[in-house]
Write a protein that binds this DNA or RNA. Structure first.
Lengths: 235, 235
DNA sequence: CTGTATTTGTACGTATGTATG
DNA sequence: ACATACATACGTACAAATACA
């Protein structure tokens, strides 16, 4: 692992364990240089990463300060699937059914979007989230088969992310999300209890591994009235 | 402005204008060094920023490639005000008009939400964003007068965040945001060109100063078809 | 398949600027 | 005025991934 990542990990671990408590000031860059036997640029790169990930805040001329932990954890929620976050927010349970589970070759639009070879083998999964007796969310997942081998319908019914991280031991790095309203499609009408709604809120999700390779593309399609998203942003 | 930011701006502008089209490869770091008369580290810092903001994707050993970038997009990495997001999007006509500017006492629902004394003095501002000749976004801002003194209609027409940070020197710390669809209100019908849309996407925003005091509550109401939100979630 | 050139990634060292106390 | 701490910028060297002859 790169040196600046090692420094990042060690400092992050100290913050999580409480050895570096919230509100406290980190040692200066010069001190960290000596402590880790690294150049200042390398130390700075680790600190930049910590700030980007919400662990610390740098103040020109003052120092680097540890942020409160609750905000960090909130950030962690961000990468988990929306339906799960949504469920925990409402304190109710959502029932998931796997509506479709296929192995396909990547269609051209997806291959281009994910920067894959045409014809790459993929899993395509449709899952419906039922809340209070109504189907309100449709998740369509595409996974690269090579990167996420051994996916089954049983896993899909449980938690795919848990499988990826704990069973396969893959490290998820980041996800790009986009939220927008779209016209209802024929598939939406089949899978969801739409009533008279003509639009759905669509969350597209491109998820990347630590090495920067994209292993997933997902569309999460929500009925308008059952959609809610919240987060905390920092300067 | 820092040199790496200038390089960032110039490259970003070329991508927005199409001089550097999507999918194309940027000149190598060495070429950019000579073109901008900068060191490689400086060029790299600009490229890192471009990647962080979703303009490009760097590929080890291959090069740096321009990503697709469609319609109106909210780049929500951190707290960003409207004019900051769209300042860069010149060439597409976006105009802001202040539709209403009042000094009021905090209504009960707001006092409770912001944890204020009943009757706290506030500014209430309505601003309409016109995109390609249509009014598509309505912002309703509430500011605590004591914390943001001297706000005027002229400031509101320009950039309130710029005023708060640079003129008043206040430190914004974090913002809680929520996004949901809501029924169109009478006010929406007055201010926006809604066509037949019966719903708007509403982003509510509670913004806090560094000491933890809330100074702002804002509702940003978007016409369905002109709403897009994107961000990057990291582990 | 093999070496070579190209391109980005990491790391180090140094110098100077800017904000804070 | 002075010291401290972070920000920017330059230069150099080597490693790692990729492309190509």
């Amino acid at each position: 692992m790169a040196k600046y990542r090692q420094i990042y990990e060690q400092l992050a671990e100290k913050m999580r364990s409480g050895a570096l408590p919230a509100e406290s000031k980190l040692p200066s860059e010069t001190e960290l240089m000596h402590a880790f036997e690294a150049s200042r640029g390398t130390v700075r790169k680790a600190l930049d990463l910590l700030q980007e990930h919400g662990y610390v805040r740098k103040h020109h001329g003052k120092g680097v300060f540890v942020l409160r932990r609750d905000q960090i954890e909130f950030q962690f929620n961000g990468i988990v699937s929306f339906s799960e976050v949504y469920a925990s927010m409402l304190g109710r349970s959502i029932q998931t059914t796997v509506a479709s589970f296929e192995e396909i070759e990547a269609p051209p639009w997806l291959a281009e979007r994910m920067n894959l070879e045409p014809g790459t083998e993929m899993y395509r999964i449709e899952r419906v989230r039922n809340f209070d007796g109504e189907n309100v969310i449709l998740d369509v997942n595409y996974f690269v088969k090579d990167l996420v081998p051994g996916l089954t319908e049983a896993v899909a019914a449980h938690s795919i992310y848990h499988y990826i991280e704990h069973e396969l031991g893959l490290q998820i790095s980041y996800a790009k999300r986009k939220i927008a309203a779209e016209d209802v499609t024929a598939l939406d009408r089949v899978r969801l209890d739409l009533h008279d709604y003509e639009y759905v809120i669509v969350i597209t999700n491109d998820t990347f591994l630590y090495e920067g390779r994209q292993f997933e593309y997902t569309e999460s399609r929500h009925r308008l009235d059952k959609f809610q998203f919240s987060d905390v942003a920092r300067r």
